[in-house]
Structure formats: C-alpha cells, structure tokens
Design a protein around this nucleic acid. Structure first.
Lengths: 190, 190
DNA sequence: AGTGATATACCTATCAGTAGATAGATATTG
DNA sequence: CAATATCTATCTACTGATAGGTATATCACT
C-alpha cells in the first residue's frame, strides 16, 4: 500500500484528515466532518476506510512515506550540512501555516490513547526519521553517538514546534535550528 | 485562585482529569468518566466546573502553579547546574509512569483546537517555565542568548518526552538531558 | 434554644447533538 | 454480471449541558 495507490476521493479524504489531525489529534476528526469537507456522505468515507483506526493508520503511513521520500538516501554523497538543511526544511514544513505541528508530534504525545495500529505506525515514523538522521550522521560519528544525536535532533525539532504553536511564535523553530547546528558541529568536532 | 483553594472532591476531579489529559489530550476527558472515577454523578462535576473549558483551564493553572512552586526562585544563590538538574527532574517527572508526556506538551500541540481560555493558560505555562530557565541562565549569558537557550532547553525536553512515549523508550529523555548539558556548557563557555 | 435563610454539595432525569458503524438500495462503468 | 462508489436510513452509545429536587451544615436573629 504505497502513497499513490489511493483513489482521488480517498486521497482527498486523507488530505483533510491529516490537516485536522495535525491541529487536534486523532479525536479531532469525525466521519461526518470529513465527508462534508470532501462533498460526500459519512457512509462513503466508511467505504474507503472501514473503521476510524484504518483511516488513522493510512494517514500516518502516507505521511511517513511522503517525508521519507522527500529526504532521499541518507547515505548518498551530499554533504552532511545539506542533508541536515533538507531535514529541517522538510520536517519543519509541518508548521507551514503557523498553526499545526508535525502529525506525529501530535499523535506521538497521545500514543497511549491511540488504537494499536495507529500507534504502531507513529512509532514506525519516528524510527524511520531518527534512523535516516543517524545514517546521515554516521560517516562523521561513532554509531552510538550518531544514534543519540539523531534522536536529540528529532526531539528538539518536535518540541520547538509544540512551543511555536502553543505560544504562537514561529521563532522557536529557527532558534532551535541554529542551536542544533552548533550542537552537531561541536559533536563532529569541526 | 491558587492551587489549594479547591475542595477535596474538586481536587480529586482535577487529579483524574490531569492524568487523562496527559495521555489523550483535552478530548480524552468526559464528565461522565471523571464522575465515575471519583464516585459521583456527572452533574456534580458540572457543579464544581460549570463548563469543560473551566475544568481544562483549572487543570492547566494548577499544573503550572505546582511546577513553578517546585522550581523555586530562579535568581537565588544555588549554582546553575543544580537549578538545571531540578528543572530536568521536576519537569520531566511527567514521564514518571513512562506513558504520559508533560500536560502542556500534550495540550500545546493541540493549542489551535482548544477553547480560548485553556489555550491561554497553556501559553502562560510555557512563558513561565521558559522565563524561569532564562532567569536561571541570565547571570552566565546575555539576555538574548539566555532567552534562546532557555526556549531550546524546554523545547528539547518536550520533544524528548514525545519521542519517549511514542517509541516506548524512556532513554530519549536521559539522552537529551546529557546533550543539553553539553550544549549549555558550550554556550556559557566553560 | 429555636427558627428561618443561605450556601454547599450532591442527586435524578432529561435534552439535543454528535459519534462510529452497518444494512441495503442505487447508479455507473467495464 | 460484477466491481466501484456512492446514497438513504438507521442503530446504539456517548457527549456537554441544564432544570429542578434533596440533604446537610452554617449563620443570624429572636
């Protein structure tokens, strides 16, 4: 099930669901609201996604695929700085309108209250993106240090988004980017 | 309205509400569930907190007061390192059972979907705790650098909690603590 | 001491609205 | 015919909220 295997209507439903979930979490979407937003009835949404957990899982899976595709191969020959810039730009684009965090930041916080399949998909997102970052760092650091620094980078970006949304001030994300850059340079000893 | 001005039953309601909200956000609490948990009927919960927004606001306000009280005066004569240790210990205690993030991390992510008063209280929490941290750093750094580093510290702690809950691995918090310590030391030039 | 007013803290009963989900009919296309 | 995609209609369960009743306790006044 890759991200392009959805019918146009199903993709449209996923788009709306993703936007709503980013702002209010899994409980913020309802079949009726989604149906109205895409111009069908709620029973038709159930046709595409039988249960709410199926919908949630599909939203997260598609999100992960899209992000990971945008990041590309972490082991290719681009310089580390440009990989990290791409990570910051891509991942933090979640804040684009200044009013929503990364989908998995939202869902990650409520992981213990999510349907099992949805929570598993969120966990998979984090393992993917931390793994990508660790791979990108790996030529410059020991495996152990790369893993820790990668997790820290993702953590800090997540938290900065929360702070930005909660205080209504997007500067937090830029601030964290610049401090993370220093942190990475200190670690790789440049 | 300080944290000790609630009747025993109201305080009990706030306790349960806080625990549930930490795991699933504002929508995760219902008057009926709370009532059952404390042994009354839902109408009695409305007696103590007329509307859901009142309850949410009270939970967040009490949380902020408790955390800020535990942190104490950021300008007193304790060494910086022990203030930061207290911050990490106190604030990160939210993860105590390994299955819930900081209340305001959860609510901060969904700030745009919260009742206005609740969102304002969440914002107030963040401004308080970032302000405390900046004050603690202020003897060692310029005001501008202290503000930035303080926001970064809080961001990183928030994000680490999300990662810890989402992946079920509490090591992320310890990891971030140690990298933040390095980051602070690099900034104050020690 | 006795009486009435007031406040506190609960209750029962109910409301309109919304939730996720399903059964079964209909239309369109290959 | 069969697959796809929609519909109408409906179900049960739960949501926040309100109206109005009950019991208890405290206080003021005679």
């Amino acid at each position: 099930m890759n991200a392009n295997s959805y019918s146009p209507k199903a993709a449209q439903i996923l788009d709306v669901a993703e936007n709503h979930m980013r702002k209010g979490g899994f409980d913020a979407i309802s079949f009726r609201d989604l149906a109205t937003a895409v111009g069908v009835k709620s029973a038709s949404v159930h046709y595409h996604f039988p249960a709410k957990a199926d919908l949630g899982q599909a939203v997260v899976a598609r999100y992960r695929e899209r992000i990971m595709d945008a990041l590309g191969d972490p082991m290719d020959h681009r310089p580390l700085a440009s990989k990290l810039k791409l990570l910051f730009d891509t991942y933090a684009a979640a804040l684009k309108d200044g009013d929503s965090v990364c989908l998995c930041c939202q869902l990650g916080a409520e992981a213990r209250d999510l349907p099992k399949d949805v929570a598993a998909e969120v966990e998979r997102f984090f393992k993917s993106i931390v793994g990508w970052t660790a791979s990108a760092l790996s030529p410059s650091l020991s495996a152990s240090k790369a893993d820790k620094l990668a997790a820290h980078i993702i953590s800090a970006l997540q938290g900065a988004m929360v702070l930005a949304v909660a205080t209504g001030d997007g500067v937090h994300l830029k601030n964290t980017r610049s401090l993370l850059k220093d942190c990475v340079e200190a670690q790789i000893g440049r």
